[in-house]
């Protein structure tokens, strides 16, 4: 890890200074008050959205988590009963394990692949837009209903994977997508398969690094490896951090792919019963929205906790241009 996230000092007069002169500390004064006002103006739409669209439903779900709301009847207050029930709910515990395995395996894999390809593609490979588009295509499918069929086609008993492995002499292979021990693995692959989104964000981030930093460093005689570690990576850390948070939150909330591939059951035998899928089934299939709301708030606590840890850790490895 380089000592500074900024480019090495350059001979070129066009390169920005490495250290900004300290900004004059403004008095907590009219200037600050003006900045406050400007900030609130910029945030005005968000404030309105928060007050009107966001806070209401979120608060409602919090309140509902203390009720027996069934969707079809008015709720009755039940205190912390829903939260107490979570302790003894073995299917919930199973779904937590499934979700954690999924998050902690698929997120690093997906990000690593996305970053690696973004770096390869950023080297000015000829036909870059074509590759970028091709790699991005799978991500466009989203939660398409066709996914279930496509995935069986690849990971089924007679699917592509087994046919290829068969050519190498492997026989009697199981159908991966329908096996309780492997179904979760195929969903992890499905998530990694759609690495296009973080890849594009990485590419955008790479494009934002001023080329003059590299040119200056090249003139200084820094080798490609040194340039990579002292310019590319440090300047990309805010974007890596963003992708990490984004994929973390998304992975915890994974729903539609598991829902579609398992036909809404979380099967086989609950092996792909993700947390949000379980929550959805409790709320909409068992008419147990009070409990589902409690589940949602517990999930929020988990995600918020992990996000907070990441934010604290980010102070040690993320370098902003405005430090």
């Amino acid at each position: 890890m380089p000592s500074t996230g900024r480019a090495p000092t350059a001979v070129n007069e066009h390169a920005p200074p490495t250290h900004r002169p300290p900004r004059p500390r403004r008095k907590k004064s009219m200037l600050q008050r003006r900045e406050n006002r400007a900030a609130y103006l910029f945030l005005a739409p968000w404030f309105v959205g928060l007050a009107v669209v966001t806070i209401g439903p979120i608060t409602a779900s919090l309140v509902l988590s203390f009720t027996d709301y069934s969707l079809l009847e008015s709720p009755n207050w039940v205190g912390t009963e829903n939260y107490e029930r979570m302790l003894g709910d073995s299917r919930l515990h199973n779904s937590l394990i499934v979700t954690f395995v999924y998050v902690f395996v698929s997120v690093p894999l997906q990000l690593a692949l996305a970053l690696a390809l973004a770096l390869v593609l950023d080297r000015g490979v000829r036909g870059l837009p074509i590759y970028r588009s091709v790699y991005y295509l799978p991500s466009l499918l989203g939660g398409s209903v066709a996914i279930a069929i496509l995935w069986r086609l690849v990971f089924g008993t007679d699917g592509l994977i087994n046919q290829v492995l068969g050519m190498f002499g492997f026989e009697d292979l199981p159908g991966w997508v329908g096996h309780p021990d492997y179904a979760l693995g195929t969903l992890i692959v499905l998530n990694v398969w759609t690495f296009g989104s973080p890849m594009v964000i990485f590419l955008a981030g790479l494009r934002q690094i001023p080329t003059m930093y590299y040119e200056a460093a090249a003139v200084d005689g820094a080798g490609p490896l040194k340039r990579f570690f002292s310019i590319t990576i440090p300047l990309l850390t805010p974007i890596i951090f963003f992708n990490l948070i984004l994929q973390l939150i998304n992975a915890f909330q994974t729903f539609s792919q598991a829902f579609i591939v398992s036909g809404g059951t979380g099967g086989p035998a609950d092996s792909t019963m993700f947390y949000t899928l379980y929550l959805y089934l409790r709320g909409f299939s068992a008419f147990d929205m009070g409990y589902a709301s409690a589940l949602a708030w517990f999930l929020l606590l988990i995600i918020a906790g992990l996000t907070a840890v990441n934010f604290i850790a980010s102070k040690y490895w993320v370098h902003y241009g405005d430090d």
Binding site: I58, A60, A292, L300
Partner: peptide, 21 residues
């Protein structure tokens, strides 16, 4: 923090209040 927190709830529990709204 509130901004980030607002995207951490699964849609399935906020959709009904949103619908009512």
């Amino acid at each position: 923090a509130i901004m980030l927190g607002s995207i951490m709830l699964p849609i399935h529990v906020v959709i009904v209040p949103q619908y009512i709204l």
